[in-house]
Nucleic acid binder design. Structure first.
Lengths: 188, 188
DNA sequence: GTCTATATTTCGATAGAC
DNA sequence: GTCTATCGAAATATAGAC
């Protein structure tokens, strides 16, 4: 991997572990095994580097979610596959955690990819719910947008519960809890 | 308010807005209108002050939740009252945000009240769900612990969605989404 | 109890040699 | 492109006067 990529990867790791406020240029350089001058040659500073790191993570997250939600099968089945896929639960969501970072939310350039990721994810899930209604799998009484928001929120909040408990089980409970509720809302 | 209380209140405000890593002793002193020496006279340092602030917030959150969940009425009704109560949605949850703070999670003395708050909340909500089952309001097929985790997670994740969108509506959608699903799980 | 002065380390970036 | 040297400011405390 070249120097530029190593800097981006180090930044991704540190943003995930410590957030933007908690990540210093020095720590990025040390993790990447790169000197100061090298970092400032490739990037104007911490912000530009963070943007590159967030973009890369957002793209990965989006591609993975899209893949899970696009496999053949029913709507609930695909949502379950997405929610149940293997995750680093105790580390939390690398994009979701950025919403708690005041400097990220204050900088439009950093905030933009975070906003886009969640807007896209809610829209994508709402489509899957609508497909379930159209296929006669889910009740027409369901509100796709509200249900999609509830699903994404359960995922994000599940990370919060797991980190608070230092235990992945509350996350798994939350996922199984919402899936059970969703199953009960099947068309009957 | 005395100096000690002003320091705790300032710390509460700043922990909510900027987290632990993003809050400096200097900013606390300035917001409280207090000098350095004064702060270090009342508290050994940032950590001890943060613990006092977190304790106070955790107590308030717990008392408010307990009050909402204890009013007369059905289980779903009380859960709805709790979820729909007025909130500073875009500011997020003052306790939940701390789970994203690496230095909070690394310090047992700061982590403890966060863990206790969520453990208590999940347990309390599971009790309400169980009461709903016993009263014949909710289906006996429901898993109280999983449902409770899903409810708390939706709330916490709703804050994430709202902050990502810089708009309270995704939060409100998530709340209405889970309540609709819960309503569909009524005993029939 | 509260204040100011000081100390040490880190932050985030720039300068300039190679 | 990468390195080391340096910079001004901020973080987090401690010291000691009042």
């Amino acid at each position: 991997m070249n120097t530029r990529d190593r800097l981006i990867e180090s930044t991704r790791t540190l943003l995930w572990e410590r957030g933007y406020v908690g990540t210093s240029p020095k720590s990025i350089q040390q993790l990447a095994g790169v000197g100061q001058g090298s970092m400032y040659h490739h990037f104007s500073g911490k912000e530009e580097l963070a943007r590159a790191a967030i973009d890369r993570t957002a793209e990965e997250i989006g591609a993975a979610a899209d893949a899970q939600l696009s496999v053949p099968g029913g709507a609930v089945e695909r949502i379950a596959a997405y929610l149940r896929r293997e995750r680093d639960v105790l580390k939390g969501c690398p994009i979701g955690r950025l919403t708690q970072d005041p400097d990220v939310m204050a900088a439009p350039v950093l905030r933009e990819p975070v906003e886009e990721t969640f807007t896209w994810l809610r829209t994508r899930l709402a489509s899957v719910v609508t497909e379930g209604v159209d296929a006669g799998e889910l009740s027409p009484a369901i509100d796709p947008a509200a249900t999609a928001s509830a699903i994404v929120a359960t995922l994000q909040g599940g990370y919060v519960l797991a980190r608070a408990a230092d235990d992945a089980r509350p996350f798994e409970q939350a996922i199984e809890g919402i899936l059970a509720l969703l199953g009960a809302y099947s068309a009957r």
